[in-house]
Computed example of a mutant assay.
Amino acid sequence: MNGTSIKHMVVFKLHAGKNNVNAEQFLNLSADELTTIPGVEQFEVLRQVSPKADYDYGFSMVFANQAAYDAYNIHPVHTQYVAERWLKEVSSFQEIDFQLFEK
């Protein structure tokens, strides 16, 4: 990852809870949908293992630059995913976007 690329991460809890069929279906369908969007690189589905955290799952992905990230945010697959799946199935979340710190 270079200094202009962006690592986009989101951690979240589901209304369905964790470690059940509904949660697994959400994770799998999310990966299937979001990875079809141009510019999404290094997509990962993550399971929280720390008892100190309030969230159960996470997604991590990398964009080559701000333009790729902006295109992702307005892509029809992403906006439909947010409206039809994310807003209905996610109970709470936190987003964070990182760029590599360079001295």
Score class of each variant (00 low, 15 high):
21 V>I: 07
22 N>E: 15
64 A>Q: 14
26 F>L: 09
60 S>E: 07
65 N>D: 15
62 V>A: 00
36 T>Q: 14
63 F>Q: 07
76 P>M: 03
51 P>D: 14
67 A>S: 13
51 P>I: 15
24 E>T: 07
49 V>S: 08
63 F>W: 07
23 A>C: 06
69 Y>R: 08
72 Y>E: 09
43 F>L: 05
54 D>H: 09
23 A>N: 08
66 Q>D: 15
58 G>L: 08
51 P>L: 13
68 A>D: 15
31 A>H: 06
34 L>I: 13
52 K>V: 14
25 Q>A: 10
72 Y>L: 09
65 N>V: 13
68 A>S: 15
54 D>N: 10
31 A>W: 00
45 V>D: 06
22 N>Q: 13
55 Y>K: 10
35 T>I: 09
34 L>M: 01
42 Q>M: 05
71 A>M: 06
27 L>F: 03
48 Q>H: 12
61 M>A: 15
28 N>R: 10
21 V>P: 01
46 L>P: 01
47 R>F: 00
37 I>W: 01
29 L>Q: 10
49 V>F: 07
62 V>Y: 01
33 E>A: 07
37 I>N: 04
38 P>E: 12
55 Y>T: 14
68 A>I: 14
59 F>P: 00
22 N>Y: 10
70 D>G: 03
68 A>N: 10
42 Q>I: 06
54 D>C: 07
41 E>R: 07
55 Y>M: 13
60 S>W: 00
23 A>E: 11
77 V>S: 01
48 Q>W: 09
21 V>Q: 00
76 P>Q: 02
23 A>Q: 10
73 N>T: 11
29 L>G: 03
71 A>W: 01
47 R>G: 00
77 V>Q: 01
70 D>M: 08
25 Q>F: 06
66 Q>H: 03
59 F>R: 01
56 D>L: 04
63 F>H: 03
